[in-house]
Simulated assay, not measured.
Amino acid sequence: MKKLLISLALLLITACEVKPPQLTAKVNKEPIKVYQGSYCWNENGRGECADTALPEEMVKGNVPTVVSKASELKVHFDYEPKKGSVGANIWTNGEAKDQKIVNSDTIILPRKPGIYVYSVHANWEEGDSSYALQVEVK
């Protein structure tokens, strides 16, 4: 009986979580690790905001996924954002520069070899969220 009560309590806590949609990213069907960034999300009468470090700090110390020059980085949300709200930045030394997104889901990666950190952000009726990822172009 005690195990059943604990299981039910965990289920209720999990069901009440207020989290933004998940983002997946791939290059040539190879998954790229995505880090949850800052967000504010309101759902079912509950709201939550979380602030994170800058994308370069979030990925620091983690091994980037190696990709080919000029590859296409495809991004996908598990819940469709507002039309026209998806954006991206490329980060260098704490500075963000706008990064063009093609068809709301594709970032063309650089031709120059190096490690690149990106942030992707979007808006929904329930709130907004940002995400970070890094790749190494070889």
Rank of each mutant, 00 (worst) to 15 (best):
D51V: 12
L4M: 08
Q99H: 00
G84E: 05
I32C: 08
L73A: 07
C49P: 07
K2Y: 07
E56A: 04
V63G: 03
L4Q: 04
S68G: 13
K100Q: 07
K100S: 08
H121E: 02
P64Q: 09
E57P: 14
L109T: 00
Y116I: 01
V135I: 10
A25H: 05
A50G: 13
K2S: 08
G94H: 05
K112W: 02
I107F: 06
R46A: 15
V117H: 04
Q22E: 01
K138E: 00
A132E: 05
D51M: 13
L23G: 07
R111N: 01
L4H: 08
P113W: 00
V135M: 11
V63K: 10
V63P: 02
K19V: 08
E43N: 15
L23D: 13
G84T: 06
L12R: 12
D128K: 10
A50F: 11
M58N: 08
F77H: 10
N123D: 15
N123L: 13
E126Q: 14
D78V: 07
W91E: 01
G114V: 08
A53V: 02
L23P: 04
K29H: 01
N89R: 15
L10D: 08
T65K: 13
P21N: 09
S38W: 02
V27C: 12
V59S: 12
K33D: 01
A96W: 03
E17P: 03
G114Y: 04
E80W: 05
I32N: 12
C16L: 09
A96Q: 04
G84C: 08
T52N: 15
P81N: 09
L54K: 15
T65H: 04
T92H: 09
P113C: 12
C49K: 07
Q22Y: 00
L11H: 01
K33E: 01
G47K: 15
C40G: 14
K33R: 13
P21D: 02
K82H: 09
W41V: 07
K74L: 11
E48P: 10
G127H: 02
E95R: 14
M58S: 05
K29V: 12
I108Y: 12
K29I: 03
V86Q: 10
K83D: 14
V117K: 10
W41P: 15
S130L: 14
A53T: 00
G61Y: 11
L8Y: 01
N28C: 04
A88L: 01
I115C: 03
I13N: 07
A88V: 07
N123M: 09
A15G: 07
K100P: 08
K60A: 09
H76V: 04
L10T: 11
I6D: 13
S119W: 08
I13S: 12
R111Y: 04
A132N: 03
V59Y: 06
W41D: 03
S85I: 06
V117P: 03
P21F: 05
V63T: 12
V27P: 15
K2I: 01
V135Y: 09
W91Y: 00
T14M: 08
Y116C: 06
T24N: 14
L73V: 06
I101N: 09
T24E: 06
Y131S: 07
P110R: 12
K100W: 10
G127I: 03
F77Q: 15
I6A: 15
S71N: 11
K33N: 10
N123H: 11
Y118F: 11
E72T: 13
L54F: 13
Q134S: 15
G37D: 06
V137I: 14
V27N: 08
D128R: 12
L4C: 06
G37Q: 03
L10A: 13
R111H: 00
V66G: 10
